[in-house]
Design a protein around this nucleic acid. Structure first.
Length: 623
RNA sequence: CGGGGCGUAGCGCAGUCUGGUAGCGCACCUGCUUCGGGAGCAGGGGGUCGGAGGUUCGAAUCCUCUCGCCCCGACCA
């Protein structure tokens, strides 16, 4: 049992102006954290207790599948040069020199350190599989730290790495982490979704992010009732059928004068059509992925339905570029042949047309095409034309004529123009149906609390880790990596809870600061509030109840401060503890009040039964 | 790195335009009263105005430089 009167819990009545998001304000006001610099925070006793509880849960679950390490954060620069990440990380990594002038870095993650241990120690397939993890401070020189503990430069991360002899083994290690992560987040009281993630340039075979919906998040994810969930960068949907326009005249493309009609809205109004019956053109220049700067940029033109938005991550992956930027007017004229507002697919000189690669949509053929695109040098390259899947099979569309103040109608893909490839390159929209169960998709901001990723051979190859297999042949172990942001669990829990309180009491002035944590991660499971410590009966009863609870194994905080009841109630709520026992007037009748902040209920319980009553509540919450 | 905003007491803010040597609320300390939803009255302590330089008889206030923090964007294995 701990006594509030002896503790350091510096609560604030008002939040510092620097705090913008709910969790940041709450963490400051509740005395969990204090800021030292941009993206650098001290964890005060309450914050530390909560963090410790989260770490304990992570350890318990991770110990079921792996072994804990403690690894150095101070790393020699050479180690990161070996893996090739020294250059990749650039300014995102903190650099320093020791007294001899040797270059050191502060580790952002521990793939390099772990792999160096693996290559030195692992010799045989008999030593595999291994799952190694650590919970440590990581450093990232974020270009823009923000939102309290959500995006910081120094933070705790649980990082795990698996080494397996083959892909089947990696699948197993990956699945173990999937299960462990679900257990961890559930025990922490989080409502999460596991989404398919963009595996980036590495093209790994599997990658899942564990996300918690909150407006403070920086990612957009789509999910539906049938269990489909994906990052917007990966999400696909079923499109409702769209009625094609009836052909006019002889049904072939017809040039129409459309003076000044440069926007989708103008054009659809002019023709009296839906935006889904119009073709939108988005034009980019991009550097070929994996090639040195200085190579000429390549033109990439995307065509989508007028009511759809291009997803640059998808387009980047498809086109094999490292990045994209919009074309300048000069580039539009050169590569497409028309002015902005009147761009269209007819007449573009493409990198490849009508070839065997044309029209491929998925699978190995698509991968092959992407490979080919990557291998085409940029010198003198013709335009790469990408048609979004949403336009496949459509007829009699309206599009720009690549001529100022003119559009075409009766344009049919495949008949009137071809493309380099057809692919999914758009953002899904909320309300569209998911691809597996046909349920409406919900789109929302979310924060990433965990990520599991099939790494493959990236590090074992570059850093030279080898073991002998059963045939005595030297093979590379295959790796997976798996991260959890410890502070983000706390932050996400606060954000979610604060948001639901706010939704419930939209009018309450400070609803944004109302929240409650799961007892599993709250700094204390219960606060025993003696409403007036000057009344000997109340004081004695509170002491006894707190002592009993403590003896029963409950993590209890006794508010024995000589403060007014209102102050104590407010403080107890501020620190997010889910249960509160009020020792007050009803004691004369042998009763105390149990306030359940998660259920938002208050019940009278007899002094004799309060310990058992609370214990059963706590046990239920741990299921 | 681009755009915007802000640094005055522990927290929230006023004062800056129109220079005259710093003020309010909360918090803190003392006393009395009060005691179930951030108490009342009285008294009190605390800042040299982010930093440096300059202009001036005189600078929180004007000028120059600089440091820091927040927000939007870019970036984010």
């Amino acid at each position: 049992m701990q006594r509030w009167s002896k503790l350091f819990i510096p609560t604030l009545r008002e939040a510092p102006t620097d705090a913008e998001v709910a969790s940041h304000k709450i963490l400051l006001r509740a005395g969990y954290i204090r800021q030292l610099g941009a993206g650098i925070y001290s964890y005060l006793p309450l914050g530390q207790r909560s963090i410790n509880k989260i770490c304990a849960i992570v350890r318990e679950e991770m110990n079921k599948i792996g072994q804990e390490f403690l690894l150095p954060t101070l790393n020699p620069r050479e180690l990161w040069e070996e893996s090739g990440r020294y250059a990749v990380m650039g300014d995102n990594m903190f650099h320093l020199k020791d007294r001899k002038g040797a270059d050191l870095v502060l580790a952002m993650t521990h793939e390099e350190v772990i792999t160096s241990i693996a290559r030195n120690e692992l010799r045989s397939y008999k030593q595999l599989p291994q799952i190694w993890y650590q919970i440590q401070t990581k450093f990232r020189d974020e270009p823009r730290p923000k939102s309290g503990l959500l995006r910081v430069r120094q933070f705790l991360m649980k990082d795990a790495y698996s080494f397996d002899i083959d892909a089947a083994g990696l699948d197993e290690s990956y699945n173990k982490h999937d299960a462990a992560y679900r257990a961890i987040f559930t025990r922490c009281g989080l409502q999460f979704v596991a989404v398919e993630a963009d595996s980036g340039a590495m093209g790994g075979s599997g990658s899942q992010e564990f996300m918690v919906y909150t407006d403070a998040g920086e990612d957009l994810i789509a999910s539906s009732a049938s269990g489909y969930a994906a990052n917007l960068e990966k999400a696909i949907s079923q499109l409702a059928p769209v009625e094609d326009l009836a052909p006019t005249g002889d049904g072939t493309p017809e040039l129409v004068s459309t003076p000044g009609k440069a926007s989708i809205a103008d054009v659809t109004e002019f023709f009296g059509i839906q935006s889904s019956q119009d073709i939108k053109c988005v034009a980019f220049m991009g550097a070929r992925a994996g090639h040195p700067a200085g190579e000429p940029l390549r033109p990439i033109v995307a065509f989508l339905r007028g009511d759809h938005q291009v997803n640059e991550t998808k387009l980047t992956a498809i086109a094999g570029t490292a990045d994209l930027r919009p074309m300048t007017p000069e580039e539009l004229a050169l590569h497409i042949g028309g002015p902005a507002g009147f761009l269209g697919p007819i007449g573009i000189e493409q990198v490849m047309t009508q070839g065997s690669l044309n029209g491929l949509k998925s699978g190995k053929a698509l991968d092959k095409l992407k490979g080919v695109l990557r291998d085409v040098p940029s010198e003198g390259i013709k335009t790469i034309v990408v048609l979004d899947l949403g336009l496949e099979g459509r007829k009699n569309l309206v599009c720009g004529a690549n001529k100022l103040d003119y559009h075409y109608r009766n344009v049919t893909p495949g008949r009137d123009f071809t493309q380099t490839l057809i692919a999914d390159i758009r953002n899904i929209n909320e309300g569209e149906l998911d691809p597996i169960g046909g349920q409406p998709l919900r789109l929302g901001k979310a924060v990433e609390v965990g990520h599991i990723f099939k790494l493959g051979y990236k590090y074992t190859e570059s850093m030279g880790a080898r073991v002998l297999d059963a045939n005595g042949k030297e093979v590379m172990p295959i790796m997976g990596c798996y991260g959890i942001g410890i502070e983000r669990i706390l932050t996400a829990a606060i954000e979610s809870s604060a948001a639901s309180f706010k939704a419930q009491f939209p009018d309450t002035e400070k609803a944004g600061d109302q929240y409650a944590l799961s007892p599993t991660i709250a700094p204390y499971e219960v606060v025993v509030t003696i409403t007036n410590v000057r009344e000997a009966d109340l004081l004695a009863a509170g002491e006894k109840i707190a002592a009993d609870l403590s003896a029963a194994g409950v993590d209890v905080l006794l508010d024995d401060r000589d403060e007014r009841a209102g102050v104590k109630f407010k403080d107890a709520e501020l620190i997010g503890v889910p249960y509160r026992i009020n020792i007050g007037k009803k004691l004369a009748e042998g009763q105390v009040e149990l306030v359940d902040r998660l259920q938002q209920s208050t019940t009278d319980v007899t002094v004799e039964s309060i310990t058992n009553h609370l214990q059963s509540l706590l046990n239920a919450s741990k299921q």
